[in-house]
Amino acid sequence: NQASVVANQLIPINTALTLVMMRSEVVTPVGIPAEDIPRLVSMQVSRAVPLGTTLMPDMVKGYA
């Protein structure tokens, strides 16, 4: 089972991601792979992401 990136806190719209905002977790459906966490740092979210939400490619500007 592949771990995905999950929000560790509420991430407001247009916030630049930092390591403390993200954790890896095995979830369904699968989201952005956990190994991409270093690449996500400083990228902005395109919408508010609630705590515990799996990050999907369309939620991060410039990821897809």
Rank of each mutant, 00 (worst) to 15 (best):
S42N: 12
M21K: 03
T28G: 06
V30L: 11
V5E: 01
I11E: 00
R23C: 04
S46N: 14
V5L: 04
V41L: 09
G31A: 03
R39P: 02
V30G: 13
Y63W: 14
V5G: 01
G62H: 11
L19A: 15
V27A: 07
L40F: 02
L17T: 00
L19C: 05
P57G: 11
M59F: 10
V20C: 04
Q44F: 09
R23W: 04
V30Q: 11
T15Y: 07
T54N: 02
G62K: 07
Q44M: 11
L40V: 05
M43F: 07
V49M: 05
G62V: 04
V27W: 03
P50A: 10
Y63K: 03
I37W: 03
S24Y: 05
D58M: 08
Q9G: 05
T28H: 13
M56N: 09
L17N: 00
V45P: 02
R39L: 13
G31L: 02
M22R: 00
M43G: 03
V30T: 15
R47I: 15
Y63F: 15
Y63D: 03
V26N: 15
V26Q: 13
T18Y: 03
P38H: 15
V41P: 02
I37H: 03
N14D: 14
S4W: 02
I11D: 00
M43Q: 10
E25Q: 12
V27D: 02
I13S: 13
I13V: 12
S4R: 02
E25W: 09
I11A: 00
A3Q: 12
L17I: 13
G52T: 02
V20Q: 10
A48L: 10
L10M: 11
V5D: 01
G62W: 06
L10I: 09
K61T: 11
M22A: 00
E25I: 06
V27P: 01
L19V: 13
V49A: 06
Y63Q: 03
G62Q: 09
L55G: 00
Q9Y: 09
M21W: 02
V20N: 14
I37A: 12
T53N: 11
L55Q: 00
I13M: 14
V5K: 01
A48I: 08
N14Q: 09
P57I: 06
P12G: 09
A34P: 08
L55V: 11
A64S: 14
V45E: 01
L51E: 13
I13Y: 07
R39A: 09
N1H: 09
I32V: 08
M22N: 00
N14Y: 08
V41S: 04
S4L: 01
V27N: 03
S46W: 13
S4P: 00
V49R: 03
P38M: 14
E35M: 14
P29R: 05
M43S: 10
E25N: 07
P33H: 09
P57S: 09
R23N: 07
A64T: 15
D58E: 08
G62D: 15
I32A: 01
L10T: 15
T54I: 08
E25M: 14
L17K: 00
